[in-house]
Amino acid sequence: NLYFQGLKYMVPGARVTRGLDWKWRDQDGSPQGEGTVTGELHNGWIDVTWDAGGSNSYRMGAEGKFDLKLAP
């Protein structure tokens, strides 16, 4: 699974964008943008601060869902 392989790169400072299971509307800005991981992966959740200004926790394994992917 590509998403599980990418988890080791989901570290503080990593750049991310919305992924396969995104369901959080425009939390990442409008139009959709990139963000920066600000915390360690914990119980399948990870913290992100978006360039647009907001921050929140997103699923990276929790509930079998992956809200994020590494930015290109």
Rank of each mutant, 00 (worst) to 15 (best):
N1E: 14
N1C: 15
N1I: 12
L2N: 15
L2H: 15
L2Y: 12
Y3D: 15
Y3Q: 15
Y3L: 14
Y3F: 14
F4G: 12
F4M: 12
L7S: 09
K8C: 15
Y9P: 06
Y9M: 10
M10W: 13
V11K: 12
P12G: 07
P12Y: 11
A14V: 11
A14W: 03
R15I: 03
R15W: 05
R15E: 00
R15H: 03
T17E: 10
T17F: 06
R18C: 06
G19P: 03
D21W: 06
D21P: 03
W22T: 03
W22Y: 06
W24F: 06
W24R: 04
W24G: 07
W24E: 06
R25G: 15
R25Q: 14
D26M: 08
Q27N: 06
Q27W: 06
D28S: 06
D28A: 05
D28Y: 04
G29N: 06
G29V: 06
G29C: 07
G33M: 08
G33K: 07
G33H: 06
E34V: 14
E34A: 13
E34R: 13
G35P: 01
T36K: 05
T36A: 04
T36W: 07
V37C: 08
V37P: 00
V37R: 01
T38L: 09
E40N: 13
L41V: 09
H42M: 11
H42A: 10
N43G: 10
N43T: 06
G44I: 03
W45C: 05
W45S: 00
W45R: 03
W45K: 02
I46A: 03
D47P: 13
D47R: 15
V48W: 02
T49Q: 12
T49W: 07
T49A: 10
T49R: 11
W50Q: 00
D51R: 03
D51Q: 04
A52R: 10
G53F: 03
G54Y: 10
G54M: 10
S55A: 10
N56W: 13
N56H: 14
N56D: 08
N56R: 08
Y58S: 01
Y58F: 03
R59Q: 02
R59D: 01
M60A: 06
G61W: 04
G61Q: 02
E63H: 11
E63W: 09
G64H: 07
K65M: 09
K65F: 08
K65N: 04
F66H: 05
D67P: 01
D67T: 03
D67I: 02
D67V: 03
D67C: 03
K69D: 10
K69H: 09
K69N: 11
L70T: 05
L70V: 09
A71F: 07
A71Y: 07
P72L: 11
P72R: 13
P72M: 12
P72N: 14
